[in-house]
């Protein structure tokens, strides 16, 4: 909390200001507004390309791993749920928040690693950035999502370090958590549009 002066005049009827949403969370939400529009832009561009194509999916391209990614999506959703749980625990009992928090972090990292593994396989099967419109959009959209996931995980890891040292404030946890909820929340849309 920053110190806020009351002024040189004693004011009885003017209460001090208490923000509805903390600075960090509000700032993060504003950032995520832009990122939401970024995904909206890419996804609608993809939808237009798909609708305008005479043959879809483009011939000679590998099938996207719908089932494996569905399982991986569940891992990501579980990670988000665990983080919600951790955040709730943190406001009651700080110690008990650690386990779900680091479980969420681990599952999130697992999601990104599995996606990377999937990319390597798809590139091996001939789906590349240049091979077709599907490849271009797939790597663009999923890649931008992965970049967000990695940034959010890095932020969560820093939050975790603070948590271990006992310096973590609830608003700091909330700031990093909101970022991760965005990554988790936008993924089902990406999955639904790109993979199906």
């Amino acid at each position: 909390m920053r110190s806020r002066g009351i002024g040189n005049i004693q004011a009885v009827d003017v209460p001090p200001r208490t923000p509805v949403v903390s600075d960090g969370v509000l700032g993060m939400m504003l950032f995520l507004l832009t990122e939401l529009m970024l995904f909206a832009g890419m996804i609608s561009a993809f939808a237009i390309a798909k609708a305008g194509a005479t043959v879809w999916p483009p011939p000679g391209q590998p099938r996207l791993p719908i089932e494996a990614t569905a399982a991986n999506s569940l891992v990501l959703l579980a990670s988000g749920a665990l983080l919600i749980h951790a955040q709730r625990q943190f406001s009651r009992d700080r110690e008990s928040a650690r386990k779900p928090f680091f479980a969420a972090l681990t599952l999130g990292t697992g999601f990104v690693l599995f996606q990377g593994f999937e990319w390597v396989q798809l590139i091996g099967q001939g789906l590349t950035l240049q091979s077709s419109a599907l490849g271009s959009f797939f790597y663009l959209i999923v890649g931008v999502h992965a970049a967000h996931a990695i940034a959010a995980l890095w932020m969560l890891a820093r939050t975790g370090r603070r948590m271990l040292s006992g310096w973590l404030q609830p608003s700091q946890l909330a700031t990093a958590a909101v970022f991760w909820y965005f990554v988790v929340g936008v993924w089902p849309v990406v999955y639904g549009v790109v993979y199906w």
Partner: peptide, 17 residues
Amino acid sequence: FMASVGPLIAGAIMMLF
């Protein structure tokens, strides 16, 4: 600005690609 710039960032990435 923040609500409108997202699609252009998407476009800028696509253009760089």
